[in-house]
Structures are given as structure tokens and as C-alpha cells.
Amino acid sequence: MRILVVEDDRELSRQVADLFRDAEYIVDVARDGEEGEYLGLEEAYDAVVLDLGLPRIDGLSILRRWRRDGRVMPVLILSARNTWRDKVSGLREGADDYLSKPFELEELLVRIEALIRRSAGHAEAEIRCGDLVWNSRDGILTLNGKRIHLTPTEARMGRYLIHHAGRILSKGELTEHIYGTDHDPDSNTLEVMINRLRQKLGRNRIETLRGRGYRLVDPKQNDAVT
């Protein structure tokens, strides 16, 4: 999962970025409006934390541009401006949530995770794919009620797959959301990671669709269909 933090306060942006990295997210940080707008337009993010009072381009203008250009990722506005007029304007421009500064880091994390979940069509904190369950509150993956221990990268992969269960995910999309832009797309790290997850979750849970990508499925449902 990949998050963009657009915040001009150096220390605050570091704290927020650390918060998400600790929660196994890939984080990009932009410290001015221009860079933030560019990253939001060019890269694929699962969520964005956007400040309003930014140098060069203000947050509302960035949001307007993203939405106009069809960028639909969930956006949480994190701003010192906390009048209801500010909140109404931000949400009317296409933001999905609004958090006023100062704030609890935990609350920011909870809200971003809820946004990511909802944007993938999941209303509850627990996301299920058959008997595989991802609990977004504590970040634990269980299979048949038993906790599956995952490395940070496996956790990112597992979380992304279960958020988009049933959907075909291309290698490029997975790479972008699991590793960020620094990863070499030609390396076979992704295949290795898929195999490791298959070993922990069961081979038939992650389908390979040749030339198209991977898909997380509920094997019992598949069996019932066949």
C-alpha cells in the first residue's frame, strides 16, 4: 500500500511518514504544492494526506486538479484551518476526510486505513476473503482463525491483495503499490513474494493469470463454482 504525504512542515511530515512506514506502508513525501500535485498526477497511491496551506500551490487547488484529471484516490485533508467553511470547501472539492491539527497520530492512521478500506469497497474493519481475514485495526492476518505471521513486505502484499480480492492485479500495479517507484520492475522479487505468500496462505488462494497478473480468491467458492 502506498501513501502520499503532502506537508510543508519538515518535522511533521517526517512524523507522519514514520507513522505510515511503521504500519508497513510505502510513503512518498512532498513538501510543497508543486511536487505534491505532480506526484499525485503521475503516481498511483492508495491514499493521500494533504495539507492545505502549502508553498507554491495551495492544497485545495491541487485537489481540484487531481479530481479534474480523474485521480480518484482517497484524500484526507490534514490542516490547521479548522473552520467548518474550510471543511465544507475541502470536502466539496473532493476530499474524503478532514482532520484538524493538532491531531493524534493514531487517529490519522485509523482514518487513512478506513479510507483505503472504503475506497476498495469494504465497510467493516475486518476484510474477508473466505476464511482469510485481515483485521485493519491491529494489522493481523488470520486464516481459519489462526494468525499468519508475515514479514513487512509480505504483509504489504497480503493487505493489498485482500483489499482487492477477486480483482486481477497486474505485476506493475502490485509492484507500484508494494515496493514504490524505486523498485526494478524487471526483477523477479514479486514472483518470489507471491510464492512465499502461497506457501503461507495456500497455493490455490493466489491465482496466476498468464500475461495479466494475479488474483486473490476464496478457493472454497471456486470449488463450488467448478
Binding site: 518535522e11 492545505l52 490542516s79 490547521a80 491539527k101 493524534e104 497520530l105
Partner: peptide, 13 residues
């Protein structure tokens, strides 16, 4: 608000 609340958020965290 922007000038004060950012640093306060940092201190709080």
C-alpha cells in the same frame, strides 16, 4: 493557525 498548529502537532506527537 497554520503557523502554530503544525509545530504544536509535532510537539504533541
Amino acid at each position: 493557525a497554520h503557523a502554530l498548529k503544525g509545530p504544536i502537532a509535532v510537539m504533541r506527537n
